[in-house]
């Protein structure tokens, strides 16, 4: 589905040229969820921004490739890349309010995203947008469609971003810390939503996170990054139970056990709906 090979990117800054990621190689197999984990400065966000052609102006991919459905995204012309991004690859960023345009109504943003790739009548688009908002459990979709981003809570705004990212039925979804800006109880809802949308659409998922728990519970495979390099990759079940790299071991040891894990019975006293 996506094969990243030897990807190396640099940033130009006051201190000269800095290598942000170095020889990054990993794969996202079809229908699987892959998590990239690492701490601040590990290069996990730079990696996906390099793949998507979204590096800032002072950043540049200097070598390597990112093959997606048979095309190398790195060597693609910007306009072709833009076509793939949005149509074949859905992107969900950390801050939903940064992804949504504050001065356009939500309906207008659906229209813009739709028209970038496909012609569709106004009323058909409206029906489709309503259906998609319902599928991401946005309450009162008519009202949301008429309204603006600032009227939404963080969780609702992120649901709208997810609906927009799925609009063209992408085969790959890339999410960059999609729940970090949200409240704890909402985080779990959004992760379950992304998980469901990916599974229903038989999509692949590349999820960037600093939260090892998210990877353990939502991903098949993991890519552990440190200082711009991949230190370990493999199946989550293997890497988390038997990490082969010291850094992975340290990282796992630093996370306190889930506070409820001390409960003898996992099912415990449950609340029923």
């Amino acid at each position: 589905m996506l094969r990243v090979t030897g990807l190396t990117s640099q940033f130009r800054g006051r201190a000269g040229v800095v290598r942000a990621i170095d020889d990054v190689t990993f794969e996202v197999p079809e229908g699987e969820a892959v998590g990239i984990v690492g701490e601040t400065g590990s290069g996990k966000s730079v990696t996906i921004r390099s793949v998507l052609g979204l590096l800032p102006s002072y950043g540049k991919v200097v070598s390597g490739s990112a093959e997606f459905e048979g095309t190398d995204l790195i060597r693609l012309h910007r306009s072709r890349l833009r076509e793939i991004r949005g149509a074949r690859i859905g992107f969900v960023a950390q801050n939903p309010f940064g992804s949504l345009n504050p001065v356009l109504s939500i309906e207008k943003q659906f229209r813009n995203v739709m028209r970038a790739h496909r012609r569709i009548s106004r009323s058909d688009l409206r029906d489709l947008a309503l259906e998609r908002l319902e599928s991401v459990q946005v309450r009162g979709p008519e009202r949301v469609l008429r309204g603006y981003a600032h009227e939404l809570s963080g969780g609702m705004a992120q649901r709208v971003v997810i609906a927009l990212a799925m609009l063209h039925d992408p085969s790959l979804v890339i999410a960059d810390e999609p729940t970090t800006a949200l409240d704890v109880t909402v985080q779990r809802q959004i992760l379950d939503l992304i998980d469901a949308q990916v599974k229903q659409g038989r999509r692949s998922l590349l999820l960037v996170t600093h939260d090892l728990g998210v990877v353990a519970q939502y991903c098949h495979r993991v890519v552990v990054m440190k200082s711009g390099k991949v230190v370990e990759t493999g199946l989550v079940a293997d890497v988390f139970t038997n990490p082969s790299h010291d850094y992975t071991r340290q990282l796992l040891a630093a996370v306190p056990p889930a506070p409820w894990a001390a409960v003898p019975s996992l099912s415990g006293p449950e609340v029923h709906r």
Binding site: R188, D211, L212, G213, A216, Q217, F240, A258, A261, V271
Partner: peptide, 17 residues
């Protein structure tokens, strides 16, 4: 709140409330 805290142990999941 507790059920929203994810464990790093694969397969160790608390029923979501």
């Amino acid at each position: 709140l507790l059920s929203a805290t994810l464990s790093t142990v694969v397969g160790q999941r608390r029923e979501h409330v």
